[in-house]
């Protein structure tokens, strides 16, 4: 089974995000970078499939030089090799240009299943998996919480839909599977794993090596762009209801009805 895992390096969830003074971008100084948590589930799932069915796990990531840390972590967990789209021409892309570059990279290698996290926790777009599926002309499954892959290139995926219901999907591979929390518990990289990861191959193809036109990547290939970043207005603290129980509960219900007019 040829397994591809797409990952993105993002700021840690604990990070307090600051903006550049002119609102043109996020201040990247002082940020601790991690693998987007949903992508960790994708790496773990890829390694589990390999352990069961054999094959190789290839990590594909688009991001600046620093993203190599995230890639090495994935390799230390047990992935075999990686493609790092690190050329500056790829950067400042939107979801479409990212999906387009990832698709071009994936097309150069055998691929039976492409695993992604359900969304990156920085821009929260949740678009790349579906766009990737379209650009690779394969099927897709989003919000997958359980996956069973078989040697005959079929898969059964359980995906969460409205109100806690689940759809059971019958999938012909290759397909893009975007996983969500609950599918597995990602392993920690072992010390031997970390040592071995340093020797694993990481390709860094330029756009031309993937037959990508200079106008199709990065900012030029983007179909959308952010024109302004701002911080949301701070929420003001409201009132603490001081009366004793059970009067406090009655007061709360009264406030919700009469003041907030919400019930």
């Amino acid at each position: 089974m040829e397994i591809i895992v797409c990952i993105k390096q993002v700021p840690d969830t604990e990070t307090k995000i600051k903006l550049k003074p002119d609102g043109s971008d996020i201040e990247s100084e002082g940020i601790k970078w991690i693998i987007s948590p949903y992508d960790e589930y994708a790496i773990e799932e890829g390694i589990k499939i390999k352990e069961k069915l054999g094959g190789t796990v290839t990590i594909v990531s688009l991001g600046p030089k620093r993203a190599i840390e995230a890639i090495r972590t994935g390799l230390a967990m047990g992935a075999d090799k990686a493609i790092h789209l690190s050329d500056p021409a790829y950067l400042t892309a939107d979801t479409f240009a990212v999906a387009n570059a990832l698709a071009a990279a994936i097309k150069t290698i055998p691929h039976d299943i492409i695993l992604c996290g359900r969304q990156a926790i920085d821009d929260d777009s949740a678009q790349v998996p579906s766009m990737l599926a379209e650009l690779l002309s394969v099927g897709q499954a989003n919000f997958v919480i359980k996956l069973e892959v078989s040697q005959d290139k079929k898969a059964i995926a359980y995906r969460t839909v409205e109100g806690g219901a689940q759809e059971v999907l019958d999938i012909d591979l290759p397909a893009v599977i975007a996983v969500t929390k609950g599918i597995n518990e990602p392993r920690y990289a072992s010390l031997p794993g970390i040592m071995k990861a340093k020797q694993k191959k990481v390709d860094e193809p330029a756009p031309s090596a993937l037959n990508l036109d200079a106008n199709a990547v990065g900012e030029k290939g983007a179909k959308s762009k952010v024109v302004k970043y701002a911080l949301p207005p701070e929420r003001k603290a409201g009132k603490i209801i001081q009366s004793d129980f059970p009067q406090n509960v009655q007061d709360l219900v009264k406030l919700l009805r009469e003041e907030a007019k919400i019930i």
Binding site: F96, D124, S125, Q127, S130, M131, E134, L135, F143, K223
Partner: peptide
């Protein structure tokens, strides 16, 4: 931006080669 909308719209955007802003 519902469960189905989040599944459909990115695929549609890629087919139509358009930009898409989520949520």
């Amino acid at each position: 931006a519902t469960v189905a909308g989040k599944d459909l719209m990115p695929r549609l955007a890629a087919r139509l080669k358009t930009g898409l802003l989520s949520d």
